[in-house]
Simulated scan of single mutants.
Amino acid sequence: MPLLDIQKISIQFGGLMAVSDFSMQMEKNDICGLIGPNGAGKTTVFNMLTGVYRPTRGKILFNGKSIAGMRPYNITSEGIARTFQNIRLMKNLTVLENVKISYIYQTKCNLAESILRLPRYFQEEKEIEEKSLELLKVFHLEDKKNELATNLPYGEQRRLEIARALATQPKLLLLDEPAAGMNPQETQKLSDLIRWIREKFDIAILLIEHDMRLVMGVCEKIVVLDYGKIIAEGTPEEIRNNPKVIEAYLGEEAAHA
C-alpha cells in the first residue's frame, strides 16, 4: 500500500478546471518533485492534499485512509505537514515559541487542567520545551531560541519553518518552493538538508520548486503539470529529455543543466 495514493483528483473554480484528473503515488521515504509553469496548478494540488480545498472529484488516500475534504488540522494529525512559498512564521514570537506551538496537536491536557495549571499541564510544558529545543539543535538554531522569528536571516527563517513543520511528526512533508529567494550556495545547502531530513526523520518529501538544479539533484521522481494536467512523470533523466516538458516548461538551456 502506497503512503500517498492520489486518484484522479480534479477541482473546478466556477468555469475554470484548475486541476484535472491528477494522479500520483508516493512510497515511504520517497523524494518527489512537482514542477510546471506558474499557474499550472501545483499549489492547488498541495491545497487539496492539506485540506484547504476539497477536490471536486477523485480520491486522496493517505496510509490507506481517505483524507479528501478533511479539515487541515485533522490532516496534520494524520501525518502531513507543509511549508509555504511565502514563509509563514509567527514573526512576533520567538524562535522557540514558533516550534512549541506546533506541538499543540500532541497535547493531552484538557481545558480545566490548563486553566488551573494542574501537574499534568506543567509536565507537558516541560516535555514540549525539551522536544522543541532538541529540534532547534538539530537545525542549528538553538542559539537563536530567544530571538524573534522576524529578526532571523532569510535562510534561517526557512529552516525554522521546516523545523516547525517537523514538530508535528509528519510521515509526509510538503515543501512549497523552499529555494525561493535563495542564492546558489544556499540552494546547495537546502538540497543537502532535504536528503538529510528524509534520513533523519524517516519521512517522504514532496516539493514544488522552480530551481531545476535542486529538483534534478534531489528528486527521485518528478511529475510535471501544465494547465492543470499531468504532461509527464518519471525520473529526472526522463523528465530532462522529455520533448513535451522542454517545450512547455524547461527550455533547452534548463534541459541541459
Rank of each mutant, 00 (worst) to 15 (best):
Y154P: 00
E186Q: 15
L172Y: 09
G251R: 10
V95M: 11
T83Q: 11
A68W: 13
I194C: 06
M70D: 08
E27I: 12
T43H: 14
A180F: 12
D211W: 13
L111D: 14
E161Y: 06
S114G: 13
P119K: 05
L34Y: 05
T235F: 02
Q7G: 05
F139Q: 01
A112I: 14
R164P: 03
N241A: 14
R71W: 00
T150L: 12
L111Y: 15
I230E: 12
L111W: 15
L89T: 11
L89G: 08
A232E: 02
I35Y: 12
F13P: 10
L111M: 13
N151Y: 13
G36K: 06
Y249V: 01
I128D: 07
D192W: 11
A112C: 09
L133C: 10
N74E: 07
A179V: 04
L152I: 04
G79E: 05
T168Y: 10
K108N: 12
K200A: 10
G64Q: 10
I60M: 01
T187W: 07
I67E: 08
I101L: 15
N63V: 04
T187Q: 06
I197D: 08
V245M: 04
A179G: 03
D5W: 01
L93E: 08
N98P: 06
G58P: 14
I231L: 06
S66N: 15
E252K: 15
L136V: 03
Q85E: 14
G36M: 02
V223E: 00
W196M: 15
L34H: 01
L61A: 05
Q85T: 12
M182A: 07
A204F: 00
T50V: 05
L135F: 00
L175G: 01
K42F: 10
Q123R: 15
A180K: 12
I101Q: 03
E142M: 02
G234H: 02
I197W: 06
L193V: 11
M212E: 04
M48P: 14
L174S: 08
G251L: 05
Q25W: 00
A68T: 02
S114K: 10
R120H: 11
I67W: 07
I87Q: 07
L135E: 00
I128H: 05
A257S: 12
I87M: 05
E199C: 08
T94W: 06
F84E: 10
G39L: 02
P178K: 03
E177P: 04
F139I: 06
S20F: 13
H256F: 11
K229G: 03
S102K: 04
S20Q: 14
L173H: 05
K244F: 00
D176M: 11
L214E: 03
E253D: 12
R82N: 11
L34V: 03
G14W: 12
T43M: 15
V245K: 04
F62G: 09
I128E: 11
A232H: 07
P153C: 08
V138F: 14
A255K: 09
L61D: 02
R195D: 10
E125K: 13
A18F: 04
